[in-house]
Design a protein around this nucleic acid. Structure first.
Lengths: 79, 79
DNA sequence: CTGTGACTGCTAGTCCGTA
DNA sequence: TTACGGACTAGCAGTCACA
């Protein structure tokens, strides 16, 4: 699981959780809709301040964007 | 407190905690020493994958890099 | 309402020298 | 051991058009 995909999933979940469309989030965050689409798809490598901006609009901490959802706990990162 | 400064502080603390110099961290992470210097000073805006790389070398999660140290809890962000 | 490809401008990150 | 600045390269942010 790529971190980018992880962030994408979290953003989409958070966005939908707040009943927002990509368009609405784009308006509030200042990012374009097309960019958010790619972001949620895990195809983008956002900057720290971009993450901050997103977290702010979604009313969460940055750590909530990079945190793994619990669908299997413990990283099987053997090395 | 800027997020960039926050990350910088965390990186420096974690690095020193592991007894590493900037040079050693640069070797292990692949980033240049000059860059790490600016990063720890909070002057850089790293990308998500860069954060991941740093966290990996420091053996922590990305969230540990963006998390606020508890030196006064509660953001007075009235928002 | 959302995903994708080509394009342009900006900047993250590199390399080198100095204090 | 670390901080700072300038020129350079590669990759990303952001846009438009199409489905």
């Amino acid at each position: 699981m790529d971190v980018r995909a992880l962030v994408g999933i979290n953003v989409q979940r958070l966005r939908r959780g707040r009943g927002l469309t990509q368009l609405e989030l784009s308006l509030q965050s200042g990012f374009t809709r097309a960019y958010l689409s790619g972001l949620e798809a895990g195809k983008r490598n956002p900057r720290l301040l971009s993450l901050e901006r997103l977290a702010s609009v979604l009313e969460v901490q940055i750590e909530d964007l990079v945190r793994r959802s619990k669908s299997g706990f413990g990283s099987s990162d053997g090395g």
